[in-house]
Design a binder for these strands. Structure first.
Length: 559
RNA sequence: UGGCCCGUCGACAAGUGGUAAGUCACAUGACUUUGACUCAUGCAUUCGUAGGUUCGAAUCCUGCCGGGCCAACCA
């Protein structure tokens, strides 16, 4: 795995988080910004994670601060080393360097335990013998206050003894918990004597069987943030109700420098499921081929499809940071990669649905090449010599026997420019028994080569081509989200990705793999279709195309 | 139905008492060796809603409506 260059830089824009930091810096509450990204290693990072990364790593970068990666691995039954590795790889690919260090929440288990003991000694926590069901009943409801646990008044000595024995493995799972003494009548359920520690005889991916009690998120996370010197603990909005508990833990343990938690709305994208739980379900049920299945919104899947870190961060930035629930149009993501590839990606011609085209006045013995720009927007990209001959393939869709109005491509007795080469005129076309066109017979304006016509006539259309002699048949992965969606038409915004996994749409997957005839592309080379055969039909102009899809992604030639 | 958070163009989102930025999408026109790209133009008399305060309100107050989160020994 090679480290990519940092992609978070320069213009990070502005948002309310930065306003808060500005104020903290100005008021002297904070002198050095320190943030963290705390994924639980229970799944692969997705584009929603990229938002969290961008915000936290971006804040550190913007203010010359530190950014930590911390694996939030306090629940041994859900976590695995596979995910740790994938997270590291994805973060590295993104170029979000954890300049503050890489940490594991589980490495703080010892401190967590000591702080819990301290809380007991301070009379702020107790060992509770209520079962899970009993605790739920005693907790009350959203509208009714809870009742104090009968174990709430245990002596410090008894609590200390019991907690020590919990740690030593004397009690079975679920038999006891350590709870904070806060307020059973709080309107915030998180404050009704929340569980701080639970008994769980399970092997931890990193700690092994060293522990059989594990700290809960609210307790452990606050401690981790405080110990690492995090100044701004940025998380998504569902943790808003947890902030009072976060503050309670920090206050009652008595950290000198207390981290502050701020929340922002998580990223939602149209037609995309972003819940790690559902994504894992898709993988484990075999509904997709894996975490990097191109239909997944994971970073590894986006990477496989040719998305770049900078395009993902650009998308996140454009989508904005706010607290309002929102669903960002996936077309904004597509715009971001299109924008970048349009500037950078080298062009290659590829014919997906070939039809033979013979230039009848082109000498069979003749062979020549035409220099074609690798990227018309970037002169420094240079040109490549593309072999030309009298026998070519063009896109079947670039010829119309009976063209609609405003047709600019090839038609009987019509002229068209072969990209970077001659202007040709179609004189005849050959059909098979079924009426399918099998060959086009054309003549070229051999005097012009790839210049303007000598007589000044206008030829509006230009089409791409490959020479039959040098073309290589190849399989290209045309994984593309929009392409997929267009085949399950009329899915309303907000439709869950899962809903696409119905029998009708499963066939889409097969269509994702297309045979392409490529000119001048080497195996392993990443390329972009100059134009590919899949356009969305424009209902207002039948037979024309409203959108070129190929600029959305780049593709890697397999084999 | 308790508490907290949130409602600004089709989608995001600035704006935080002085008279509605920007982007995506969309539409039209120009340009074009790919109908792409690029360029130009258009796209919220109005900020969920009803009142109130004010010379003046998207911004402050109140009610109502709508959405999200919370009753794991998950994170």
């Amino acid at each position: 795995m090679s480290a990519s260059t940092p992609k978070i830089d320069g213009d990070l824009g502005s948002n309310f988080i930065y306003d808060i930091i500005d104020a903290d810096l100005a008021g002297g509450a904070v002198t050095q910004v320190h943030t963290r990204f705390p994924p639980e290693p229970n799944g692969y990072l997705h584009i929603g994670s990229a938002k969290a990364i961008w915000i936290s790593a971006g804040a550190a970068m913007k203010y010359g601060g530190l950014f930590n990666l911390r694996y939030d691995d306090t629940n041994p039954v859900r976590e695995d080393d596979e995910y740790v590795r994938s997270i590291e790889e994805d973060l590295n690919w993104l170029g979000a360097v954890p300049n503050g260090g890489i940490f594991y929440g589980s490495d703080y288990f010892e401190q967590c335990y000591e702080f819990a003991v301290q809380l007991i000694k301070d009379g702020k926590a107790y060992v509770c013998d209520l079962s899970q069901e009993e605790m739920a009943a005693w907790r009350g409801t959203l509208t009714e206050p809870g009742k104090n646990s009968p174990y709430r008044t245990r002596s410090v000595e008894e609590n200390l003894d019991l907690f020590g024995r919990m740690k030593n493995g004397e009690f079975p799972d679920g038999s006891r918990t350590l709870r904070a003494i806060i307020d059973m009548s709080s309107s915030n359920m998180n404050l009704r004597d929340p569980v701080l520690y639970r008994i769980l005889h399970a092997a931890h991916h990193r700690q092994g069987t060293k522990w059989c009690i594990y700290p809960m998120y609210d307790f452990a996370h606050t401690i981790q943030d405080a110990l690492e010197g995090i100044t701004h603990s940025l998380c998504s909005i569902e943790f808003e109700n947890h902030r009072p508990l976060y503050d309670w833990v920090a206050d009652n343990i008595g950290f000198a420098k207390k981290p502050r938690q701020y929340e922002f709305a998580r990223l939602n994208i149209t037609h995309t499921v972003m819940s790690k739980r559902y994504l894992r379900e898709l993988v484990e049920s075999g509904s997709v081929d894996g975490w990097d299945d191109p239909r997944m919104p994971t970073l590894c899947a986006l990477r496989r499809r040719g998305y770049t870190p900078s395009s993902i961060f650009e998308f996140v930035k454009r989508a904005g940071v706010a607290k309002a629930y929102s669903v960002v149009d996936i077309r904004l993501l597509e715009y971001c990669i299109r924008e970048e590839l349009n500037q950078n990606a080298p062009r290659r011609m590829a014919v997906l649905d070939p039809v033979k085209l013979t230039i009848t006045n082109y000498p069979t013995s003749q062979a020549e090449t035409f220099p074609i720009p690798n990227n018309p927007l970037d002169e420094t990209a240079g040109t490549r010599d593309v072999a030309f001959s009298g026998k070519l393939y063009i896109e079947r869709e670039d010829f119309s026997e009976d063209p609609p109005p405003k047709w600019q491509r090839l038609r009987p007795n019509g002229e068209v420019r072969l990209m970077g080469a001659y202007i040709i005129r179609c004189n005849e076309f050959v059909k098979d028994a079924e009426g399918n066109i099998t060959e086009l017979l054309c003549t070229a304006d051999l005097e012009t080569r790839n210049d303007k016509p000598l007589d000044g006539r206008k030829v509006k259309g230009t089409i791409h081509w490959v020479s039959a002699a040098t073309a290589v048949p190849a399989k290209a992965n045309l994984y593309d989200n929009l392409f997929t969606l267009e085949n399950v038409a009329d899915a309303p915004d907000g439709t869950n990705f899962l809903e696409y996994l119905n029998p009708d749409s499963l066939t889409v997957r097969d269509n994702c793999k297309l045979e392409a005839t490529l000119g001048g592309v080497q195996p392993g080379e990443r390329f972009q279709f100059v134009r590919m055969g899949y356009f969305s039909a424009d209902p207002k102009h039948p037979g024309t195309f409203s959108r070129v899809v190929q600029l959305k992604d780049s593709f890697k030639l397999e084999g």
